[in-house]
């Protein structure tokens, strides 16, 4: 049993990392696109009223003041607080935030378990009575993240389920998969909550399991904790088949589309990329385009007299 658990857990982690990476690389490697920015852009210096560099006379002669970090910080903060939902859709926020806090903390919990296991292997006992501060710190961190995650996530799962069922606007757009997702995550969080409350109040089972996982030596494990571990592993494997990646792709949607106001300067990388794609053949069928599957964008959109034909 515990051997199977170890294999399943390793497989789940490898699987999600590979699947996510493949998807992200696919998005990242898409061609350069036309500009379609939308204001306010957080990284613009005067973003408080949505201004862009186009508000300056002859802006192309000026150095552009821009810091990408400001935008990234904004997005990171959003991922932990969901302020946009708080402002615009508060009831939804009330259940959405706990659900996501459940995810964030359950991942933090597992990372802490991993490092806790390393600490234990290094000879530092992790428990409330540990003589080492490090040991006590890990003990409480693991306990707190785990328990808050279970409670928060279970609350969010039930809350979203109810919200989507009773709000007729949300229900009209819901699919069976939505409901399945809420029930599944509820099972994951609730199983953790059950194991903690009824079987293992100090979460020692996880610490032992992770120690075994790192040292590849299976340890006996109670069935409640094992159930949660199996459900969590299955959850990781399931995630790539959901829209869960929006947690990351959101950064792309903002940084690469909504906030992408990079001008196409002569000799820039953007210009080189654009030229490459302008020379790709087109096969749209409408008559006015005059595409034949061989002619490129440049051929089809530039008039003969232009000397830019070779562009």
């Amino acid at each position: 049993m515990s051997v199977a658990l170890i294999i399943l857990t390793y497989f789940a982690y490898v699987f999600i990392v590979v699947m996510y990476s493949v998807k992200l690389i696919k998005i990242a490697r898409m061609p350069v696109h036309l500009r379609w920015e939308l204001y306010p852009i957080a990284s613009e210096t005067e973003s408080k009223y949505g201004s862009s560099y186009y508000g300056d006379v002859e802006q192309w002669k000026k150095n552009r003041r821009k810091t990408v970090l400001k935008g990234i910080f904004y997005l990171l903060k959003e991922n932990f607080w969901f302020g946009e939902y708080f402002r615009r859709n508060r009831w939804y926020w009330l259940v959405l935030l706990p659900w996501h806090i459940g995810f964030i903390l359950i991942i933090a919990f597992h990372i802490l378990c991993f490092f806790g296991a390393i600490v234990i292997i290094a000879g530092v006992p992790v428990s409330a009575q540990s003589t080492f501060i490090l040991g006590r710190t890990f003990y409480y961190l693991i306990l707190l993240t785990g328990v808050i995650s279970f409670i928060s996530g279970a609350f969010g799962s039930i809350g979203l389920l109810i919200k989507r069922l009773i709000d007729k606007d949300l229900r009209a757009f819901a699919t069976p998969q939505n409901y399945f997702n809420y029930l599944f995550t509820l099972a994951v969080f609730a199983s953790g909550l059950y194991a903690w409350h009824f079987v293992d109040p100090t979460l020692s089972g996880y610490r032992e399991f992770w120690k075994g996982l790192v040292t590849l030596s299976p340890v006996p494990i109670d069935s409640a904790t094992a159930t949660h571990i199996i459900l969590f592993a299955l959850f990781l494997i399931y995630l790539p088949f959901t829209r869960s990646l929006h947690y990351i792709t959101k950064f792309f949607a903002y940084l690469w589309v909504r906030w992408d106001d990079k001008p196409n300067l002569k000799g820039s990388k953007i210009e080189r990329n654009v030229k490459e794609w302008l020379n790709k053949p087109v096969s749209w069928s409408a008559e006015h385009i005059k595409a034949d599957g061989k002619k490129s964008w440049v051929d089809l959109t530039t008039e003969k007299k232009s000397d830019e034909k070779e562009a």
């Binding site: 998005i27 898409m30 061609p31 350069v32 696109h33 036309l34 379609w36 792309f252 949607a253 690469w256 589309v257 794609w277 790709k280 053949p281 087109v282 096969s283 749209w284």
Partner: peptide
């Protein structure tokens, strides 16, 4: 990509 590089990613 070839036909809609202009807006594929967005």
């Amino acid at each position: 990509k070839e036909n809609n590089w202009t807006f594929l990613q967005p």
